[in-house]
Computed example of a mutant assay.
Amino acid sequence: MTLPSPSGPPASRGDGAPVSALLLDLDGTLVNSEPLHREGYRVYFAQKGWDVPDLTIFTGRRALDVLATEPGPWSGLDPQAVLDEILEHVPDEDPEPVPGARELILTARSGRTPVAIVTSAGPAWVERSLGSLGLGLDDVDLVVTALDVTAGKPDPEGFALACERLGADPAAAVAAEDSPAGIRAAVAAGVRRVHGIATTHAPDELTAAGAVEVHVDARPLLALLAD
């Protein structure tokens, strides 16, 4: 879904150049949902009697990709069946908003900066998460979910697809991500200004992955839209 851009001056990236698009991850970037997901994994592993792995391997990536490619106690099992069981244990709660996330989206949409959500989650979780921000699907220009790509993050397909559908130059876009996998995906798609949100990973991990700046929440990104 792509909406026409409202009138008004385009935002800049902070270096004087206009922002072609604002590309936003969802979990950990707009909503602090990682604690809910990790509780689902923890309960599932405990019930199986398995040692709990480093759950950061799931952060920012499609769970099916991790279960299919990473070694673990799930090796040899049907990844979809494992994921279905894990999801049964995720608390049925709305995620907490990341400070500044709602304002960031609304500020961009009130100007001429198109907004895309590029996420490893599915469509239903996108809609629920936006609802926790008091927003709906009509408040963003485009959503790219796990179902829209053949390869998940850190593959750049999702960000490249978002830029293609928005008609946006990736080199002039700004992305925000909370995981190294997501940052690498955006950088590989040609996005030159990728900002890290340190809700789930240490700042140095995000910087090492390619983030140009790291913030504790989404509020500092508002300055990019005010230039």
Rank of each mutant, 00 (worst) to 15 (best):
A21S: 13
A160L: 08
D94A: 15
E34W: 13
H195S: 08
D217W: 08
R184W: 04
R42P: 00
M1R: 13
V212L: 07
R165N: 12
V43W: 05
A68P: 05
V212T: 14
A208D: 12
L67S: 06
R184V: 01
D141E: 00
H37G: 06
E88D: 09
A218N: 02
E103P: 10
A172Q: 14
K153H: 09
H215L: 03
P71H: 06
A198E: 02
V191C: 00
R38Y: 15
V19R: 02
D217P: 06
L224S: 04
V82Q: 12
G158Y: 08
I197L: 07
L55S: 03
G210Y: 12
T59M: 12
E127Q: 15
G16D: 12
A81I: 08
A108R: 14
S179W: 09
D15F: 04
G8V: 05
G122Y: 06
D51I: 11
A124F: 00
L104H: 01
E164H: 11
Q47S: 11
A175K: 03
R38N: 14
L83M: 10
T199S: 15
P156S: 08
W74V: 05
I105C: 11
L147Q: 14
L147Y: 08
G40V: 01
E103W: 01
T113E: 11
G72V: 05
A226Y: 00
R184N: 06
L55T: 01
D169S: 12
A211N: 11
P53R: 03
T59F: 11
V126N: 04
T145H: 02
G14H: 07
L161K: 13
P97Y: 03
S179P: 11
T56W: 01
L166M: 12
A173N: 08
P91H: 14
E205W: 05
I197N: 05
